[in-house]
């Protein structure tokens, strides 16, 4: 299932707060890859792309964008998509990913990951748009399941069924964010493992893990602002045991600690990951 030239193991998201330490070599040999958001580096001059260029020579890069609005209403912005293709042609890997959401309607760009209706019509519409993006970028797409805080409109199916429906209709891969599954399970009161058993695991190409925070007494939010909970690590482990070696991103966007502290969490996560990979190998040997 794994494709060539795809890094496996625990990686980190490239954040400006961590950049100097990574440039000094403090992450060398510690992380399997860097995940970057092209929007932070493309259509941009100055020091940021110059620094990124040097890191791209030292680490495997996985690209993950934030603003495509795969579930959006209007045509894709030709300028943005053109810049994206040029960037991915230079730095991209075996796939590119973005979120199963919309970021704004009718030309607005609200810079957040907003839910889309869990309906057959919506699944087909988004699948068509994913196929269009794959054609325009000339590479496979992964879609990431988001944290949603309210179902949008009338739902014809649950979230996991909707995700599976989109994956099948678009014939694309899944960037499985297990923290988002956990947050949604808590907020909407469902069993996260039932969710994982509903989706086609053979389409999972990458994982995200992160921490979250509490919004109020009734709701968790996916802030990427805390360490990964043991329950979320267990979900990662459950998936890896079933699909084998896969790139897993440790996300951190708020309360970012020094790199040394992040790397301690990477190592702890890697121990869980390696144990799951070993169980996967043992299972295969027995089969």
């Amino acid at each position: 299932m794994q494709q060539k030239n795809v890094p496996t193991g625990i990686g980190l998201g490239l954040r400006s707060r961590l950049m100097k330490a990574i440039e000094r070599g403090e992450a060398d040999g510690e992380i399997a890859f860097l995940e970057i958001s092209p929007e932070n580096h493309m259509h941009r001059g100055g020091s940021s792309p110059a620094r990124f260029l040097k890191l791209a020579d030292r680490f495997p890069i996985i690209t993950h964008s934030l603003a495509m609005s795969l579930g959006g209403t209007g045509p894709f912005d030709a300028g943005y998509m053109g810049e994206m293709k040029r960037f991915l042609d230079r730095f991209g890997g075996a796939w590119h990913s973005d979120h199963l959401c919309f970021c704004g309607a009718d030309g607005r760009a609200l810079h957040d990951l907003l839910p889309i209706p869990f309906t057959k019509v919506c699944a087909q519409r988004v699948a068509d748009r994913i196929r269009e993006v794959q054609d325009r970028l000339g590479r496979p797409m992964l879609i990431e399941n988001i944290s949603y805080y309210q179902a949008l409109g009338h739902s014809e199916m649950d979230e996991a069924t909707f995700v599976a429906e989109v994956l099948e209709r678009a014939d694309c891969g899944l960037l499985l964010d297990v923290n988002n599954v956990y947050v949604n399970a808590k907020n909407h009161d469902f069993d996260p493992y039932a969710w994982l058993k509903t989706i086609p695991l053979h389409r999972v190409r990458q994982l995200h893990v992160a921490g979250h925070e509490r919004w109020d007494e009734t709701m968790l939010i996916d802030t990427h602002g805390a360490e990964v909970l043991p329950e979320v690590q267990d979900m990662m482990s459950w998936v890896i045991e079933r699909i084998g070696p896969t790139p897993v991103l440790l996300e951190r966007d708020r309360h970012i600690p020094p790199l040394a502290e992040m790397l301690r969490e990477v190592r702890a996560l890697d121990a869980v990951y390696q144990a799951a990979v070993a169980r996967h190998a043992a299972n295969r040997a027995q089969a």
């Binding site: 609200l110 810079h111 209706p117 805080y149 309210q150 949008l152 009338h154 009734t218 709701m219």
Partner: peptide, 29 residues
Amino acid sequence: GLEGADLEAMVEAGPTRLLAYRTMVQGRL
């Protein structure tokens, strides 16, 4: 422009989480 089953579902869900979305999106921008 919301109507029918979509409208009923959103009304039943109440305003709390729509307001949370509004706080998150507007706050960040």
